[in-house]
């Protein structure tokens, strides 16, 4: 197995544990089960990946960006369809569904806080399962087209690369047909660090 395949395998293991933990804390936060629908580690061509989102017409989303800083930096993104963020706000506040009707600071901060909690769950996996110290930065929230949100997310990593290694997952909130998407993107020297950890193992 060559080095890049080993790195991908290591990322797959990180993905399995992180996504599992993230779905648990998401369920706990909104008090409704969140099923993992997708879990994938892949190399994405930046043009094709962004084109696919444009074509899928995901519409408006609210997204939270978190930088995971530490021994192995990652960029984290959590987003949900804008309409569904209203429902998530009702769930977070334990209010009757349909109560939140407009996009206000509570709606954007719901996604902000879910991003914070999920990103922290991921860094918890790094710490407890891999002894890698990381911490999340304060989240930045954007309400915009899905393609715009995703494009800004990969911008830094895509500056010097045509293809980027990515962890992608999707959760479905049961009984409500709400899809939430979560991405992890290794940045900086993370791939090199992973390769040396795998080589030493």
């Amino acid at each position: 197995m060559d080095e890049s395949q080993q790195v991908q395998r290591a990322l797959q293991l990180i993905a399995n544990l992180s996504i599992d933990k993230a779905s648990q804390v998401l369920s706990k936060s909104i008090k409704v089960g969140a099923k993992i629908e997708l879990e994938n580690v892949y190399v994405a061509d930046i043009s094709k990946a962004t084109e696919a989102i444009m074509v899928s017409d995901e519409g408006d989303v609210v997204g939270a960006y978190v930088d995971l800083v530490g021994d192995m930096p990652f960029k984290f993104l959590f987003y949900v369809a804008a309409e569904d963020s209203l429902t998530l706000t009702d769930l977070m506040l334990r209010k009757e569904l349909g109560t939140t009707k407009k996009f206000d600071i509570y709606v954007t901060s719901t996604v902000q806080e879910l991003g914070n909690i999920l990103a922290s769950a991921v860094t918890n996996v790094f710490a407890s399962d891999f002894q890698i110290k990381m911490r999340p930065s304060p989240p930045k929230v954007v309400h915009d087209y899905a393609s715009t949100v995703f494009g800004e997310y990969i911008m830094e990593a895509a500056a010097d690369l045509n293809e980027i290694l990515m962890i992608e997952s999707q959760f479905r909130v049961v009984r409500m047909n709400i899809k939430c998407r979560m991405f992890l993107l290794p940045t900086g020297d993370t791939q090199k660090t992973l390769a040396s950890i795998v080589a030493a193992a």
Partner: peptide, 19 residues
């Protein structure tokens, strides 16, 4: 998509989303 170019002619509509 991002970092891409497409050319075309009448009857086509080129679309993209920007930030």
């Amino acid at each position: 998509g991002m970092a891409d170019i497409k050319v075309g002619k009448e009857s086509q509509i080129l679309t993209t989303v920007l930030g």
